[in-house]
Design a protein around this nucleic acid. Structure first.
Length: 456
DNA sequence: CTTAGGG
DNA sequence: CCCTAAG
C-alpha cells in the first residue's frame, strides 16, 4: 500500500508539473524546451553588467518575459512548497510532487486524496518556509539580492529535484523508477497519455513517449517561444499593452501562451485563510540591520503571497506588486494588535521602529508606519467605544473582533502615552490605573512628554 | 532616516 | 496604506 501511494504521488507530481505547465496541451516537450530556455537565457543576458531585474528596460522583452515566467515559477514554488514543506520536511521529491494541483490529478488517476499531503497551511512565514525547503533539499540556492539570480536558482533547483535524478539522494532514484512505472500505468489511461509521455521526456529517458504522439507534437517540441508568445505574455502580466495587432503569428495554436496563463492562474489559488497565519511566526529572525533592514523587508515582502489576490494580482509582476501594497493590505489580527499594544507599553508610543524591530521582526510587512497607523486606529476605536460592548457581544466574529480587554489596554495606554494629536482633548488624568498593564510604568509625576522620553 | 500628520 | 513635511 505504501508503495502504491508513493508511486501515485510520484506520478502525480509529474502529472502536476505537466498540468501546471501545459494543462491540456499535449506538447510536453515544448515545456521542457521552454524550461531550458528559461534557465539558460536570462543567465546569458543578465550576466555581467547588471544582475538586477531592471534589465528589462532596455535589453529585450524576452528577458523580461522570461523573468516573469521565472517569477511565476518562483511563486509556484513558494506557495505550493509552503504547504508541502510542512508535511515533507525532508523529502524533496514528495515535496515537489505534492504541488497543490494534486487534487486535479486525483481526478485523472481516480485515486483518493492524499492524506494530508496538500493544503496544510502553517503559521510559518513564506520566506521561512522557502528557506527551509531549500535547506532540506540541499540544493544550493543563493539567496542573492538579485532577483534574477534567485529566480534562476529556484528554477534550476526545481528542475533538478523534479526532472533529474540527484545522485546524492538515494530516494531520488527510487522515485524516478517509480515514476516511470507509474507512467506506464498512466499510459493506459487515455487522459494521461501525453502527460506520461511528457514526463518520460522530461527525464530524458527513452521515449515510450513518442508512442502515441502525433508528429505535430514533435515539431512543437523544439519550437522556441514565438513573438506572440512573448508579447501576449508580457501583455497579460503587465498591463503595459502592446496588442499584437500586426503580429499575426504562424503559431496560433494553443501552446505556450496558454501554458503560461494556466500556470499563472493556478498560482491564484491560495487559501485566504493564510492571511492571518503570520501571527505566530516568531521564528525566522530577520536580519536586524538597522540601516538596510527596510530594504530587506521589501525584498521579503516580494516573497509574500497575497492571499486574496484577484485577477490582476496574478497578472501583475512582482515589480508592480512591490509598488502597490495598498491593494493587498494585510488585515491586522488580534495577536498582532496585542503585540502592538504590548510593544507600545514597553517601548513607548513614539518608538515605532523599535517596536517593529522587537515585536514584528518576523513579519516583513508592517512597517513602523503601519504600526503607528494601527495604533492611531486603535485609539480612535477605543475612544469611540460607545456601546462597544454590545457590539462585541453581538458580533464577535464580525468587523471588530476586538476584545474588550484589548480595548481596555488601549485606553490605559492612551492615558499614559497619549497620541500626539490627542493632546489636550483628553486630560491626562493620571489615575494610575493603567500601569498594571505596562511593564515598567514610570512614576506618575511625569508628564506625558516625560513619559515618552523616559521610554525613549 | 524617523516620526507626525493628513489624504 | 500612501504621501509629505519636519526634526
Amino acid at each position: 500500500m505504501d508503495r502504491e501511494d508513493y508511486l501515485r504521488k510520484c506520478s502525480n507530481m509529474k502529472c502536476q508539473r505537466v498540468q501546471v505547465d501545459e494543462s491540456y496541451v499535449p506538447a510536453l516537450q515544448d515545456d521542457v524546451t521552454e524550461f531550458e530556455h528559461l534557465l539558460a537565457e536570462p543567465r546569458n543576458n543578465l550576466a555581467p553588467q547588471d544582475g538586477s531585474l531592471d534589465s528589462h528596460t532596455t535589453l529585450n522583452r524576452k528577458d523580461d518575459l522570461e523573468l516573469e515566467v521565472l517569477d511565476g515559477l518562483l511563486d509556484d514554488v513558494e506557495i505550493d512548497d509552503l504547504e508541502g514543506a510542512e508535511c515533507f520536511p525532508g523529502a524533496c521529491e514528495e515535496y515537489f510532487f505534492d504541488f497543490e494541483f494534486a487534487d486535479k490529478f486525483e481526478e485523472v488517476l481516480g485515486s483518493g486524496p492524499f492524506e494530508g499531503s496538500e493544503s496544510h497551511s502553517s503559521g510559518l512565514s513564506r520566506s521561512s518556509i522557502v528557506g527551509g525547503v531549500l535547506e532540506s533539499t540541499e540544493v544550493p540556492i543563493a539567496q542573492s539580492e538579485s532577483k534574477n539570480d534567485s529566480l534562476d536558482e529556484t528554477v534550476t533547483y526545481e528542475s533538478h529535484g523534479a526532472f533529474s535524478n540527484n545522485p546524492s539522494q538515494p530516494s531520488q532514484g527510487n522515485c524516478r523508477y517509480n515514476i516511470s512505472l507509474d507512467i506506464q500505468h498512466l499510459q493506459e489511461l487515455d487522459n494521461c497519455r501525453h502527460l506520461a509521455g511528457g514526463i518520460l521526456t522530461c527525464k530524458k529517458e527513452k521515449g515510450p513517449v513518442e508512442k502515441g504522439q502525433p508528429a505535430a507534437l514533435r515539431e512543437k517540441r523544439f519550437r522556441k517561444p514565438t513573438q506572440r508568445y512573448i508579447e501576449e505574455f508580457s501583455n497579460a502580466r503587465s498591463k503595459e499593452k502592446v496588442p499584437p495587432a500586426g503580429t499575426k503569428t504562424k503559431h496560433s495554436s494553443n501552446s505556450s501562451c496558454n501554458v503560461l496563463h494556466i500556470r499563472i492562474k493556478s498560482l491564484k489559488r491560495s487559501p485566504s485563510e493564510k492571511s492571518s497565519n503570520e501571527n505566530s511566526e516568531v521564528m525566522l529572525p530577520e536580519l536586524q540591520v538597522s540601516k538596510g533592514h527596510q530594504k530587506k523587508e521589501k525584498l521579503q515582502y516580494e516573497y509574500e503571497s497575497f492571499p486574496s489576490e484577484s485577477e490582476d494580482g496574478c497578472s501583475t509582476t512582482k515589480r508592480s506588486r512591490r509598488k502597490d501594497r495598498r491593494k493587498h493590505q494585510k488585515m491586522w489580527t488580534l495577536p498582532e494588535v496585542l503585540k502592538l499594544v504590548e510593544g507600545i507599553s514597553e517601548y513607548g508610543v513614539g518608538r515605532w521602529t523599535d517596536i517593529k524591530k522587537f515585536l514584528f521582526s518576523s513579519s516583513s510587512y508592517r512597517t513602523p508606519i503601519d504600526l503607528r497607523d494601527k495604533w492611531r486606529n486603535l485609539l480612535r476605536a477605543s475612544s469611540v467605544q460607545k456601546n462597544k460592548k454590545e457590539v462585541e457581544q453581538n458580533d464577535e466574529l464580525a468587523l471588530r473582533p476586538l476584545p474588550f480587554n484589548v480595548v481596555h489596554r488601549v485606553r490605559e495606554l492612551a492615558k499614559i502615552h497619549p497620541y500626539p494629536r490627542q493632546r489636550g482633548s483628553k486630560k491626562l488624568r493620571v489615575s494610575q490605573t493603567g500601569p498594571s498593564v505596562v511593564a515598567d510604568s514610570p512614576p506618575v509625576s511625569l508628564s506625558k512628554r516625560n513619559v515618552r522620553r523616559k521610554f525613549t
